[in-house]
């Protein structure tokens, strides 16, 4: 009977982590999406495109490389869910919002770094890498998104 306490304690800690992960993670994700949507609407007037639109830009006063990056981690609940899904195969829905959030956040930060006087960000590239999970070889972790492009400004005060 005594020896059952160890595994039981492990199980309780595990369940606690999963439920804390679920509630805190859901809340954090909801808040992040609200923030992303608000800022996306605010920065909508500055376009970011992956194309260069090969044209002469006679009125441009300057071009500058701009970056934005974000590292987002997944909560414990989704980590477990993703682990299970990887066993069965199929669409790993638990990770979708993580990746979506990281990339949209990176693009937003790039726009924020470019500043409000920017007319357009050209030739945007988005890179992603996963960090923080290489050391223990675990199957889960956080994702880093990096967005970069060239900000074009036409107004003199930019």
């Amino acid at each position: 009977m005594m020896e059952a306490i160890g595994p039981l304690l492990n199980l309780i800690i595990f369940l606690l982590l999963v439920s804390v992960g679920y509630f805190a993670g859901t809340l954090a994700e909801k808040r992040h999406y609200q923030s992303i949507q608000k800022r996306e609407a605010a920065w909508l007037r500055i376009p970011a495109v992956s194309a260069r639109f090969d044209e002469k830009l006679p009125q441009a006063s300057g071009g500058e490389m701009v970056y934005g990056s974000a590292v987002i981690s997944i909560d414990y609940f989704k980590r477990i869910l993703a682990g299970l899904r990887i066993i069965f195969g199929g669409r790993v829905t638990a990770y979708e919002s993580l990746i979506d959030r990281a990339r949209r956040e990176a693009i937003l930060r790039m726009k924020e770094n470019a500043g409000p006087n920017t007319d357009i960000i050209l030739n945007v590239r988005i890179e992603t890498s996963s960090i923080g999970n290489s050391a223990n070889g675990g199957s889960v972790g956080s994702i880093e998104a990096l967005a970069y492009g060239t900000a074009i400004r036409t107004s003199q005060n930019g």
Binding site: R45, K78, T93, E96
Partner: peptide, 29 residues
Amino acid sequence: MVRYTPKLPEKNVNVTPRSHIRELFVLLS
């Protein structure tokens, strides 16, 4: 310069709308 039309997509196609709790129970069982 090409004309820019500022517009946001109405729904997020990159995230599957699905109950994660239910998925967890189905997979776990």
